[in-house]
Design a protein around this nucleic acid. Structure first.
Lengths: 92, 92
DNA sequence: CATAATTACGTTCGTCGTAACCATA
DNA sequence: TATGGTTACGACGAACGTAATTATG
């Protein structure tokens, strides 16, 4: 479970579509599909229900959304904090 | 900035040594060194002060510790939650 | 049938270990 | 000079895109 995979997962979950997620991520449908497959394999859980093509999440998928959001938010905070530190040090 | 890299970083920071971190992570010194180098390159910041060999953190390194801890904790929570879901579903 | 997702294939990039190298206490 | 960290090198795995395939509405 890496942040790159979670970013992909969350984009698909939000767009409710592999193809729209791919477009938003500037990747191909194929790449997104492969990344999600690897994440599912790693977790041992399907995250999306492929039977209906409306991009609906499984139970595990729904559960993961919240954690994925938090993880990506914290990473963003970390980046901001580092940037802030750079600014402070530059003004020395 | 990926969780794999942060796990490596945090282990080095806690052990205050690349070699002890490597041992704990069941990797070689070299692998740990390379992973840290890539992370530093990605962030555009040195995280450890190599001049003194006591494994001391730079300002950026100290700042990152807190975020790295939180990120790894949240991932652990996510894994626990998924496991819990599996147990619940198994009892159906 | 048209659109969405998966699979196959070759390429690229990050991590790995081994081994050689550099540095410092 | 012994120990800790880095660099060079080749191997492996995960990501990529293209293109062919499958499946669903």
């Amino acid at each position: 479970m890496e942040l790159f995979q979670l970013e992909t997962f969350l984009t698909v979950a939000r767009e409710k579509s592999f193809s729209r997620a791919a477009s938003r991520l500037h990747r191909t449908q194929s790449a997104v599909s492969q990344t999600i497959s690897r994440l599912e394999e790693d977790l041992g859980e399907k995250l999306f229900d492929r039977s209906s093509r409306d991009g609906s999440l499984t139970d595990a998928g729904q559960l993961l959304v919240t954690y994925a959001e938090e993880l990506l938010n914290v990473r963003a905070e970390a980046r901001d904090a580092l940037q802030e530190l750079r600014c402070i040090k530059a003004s020395w």
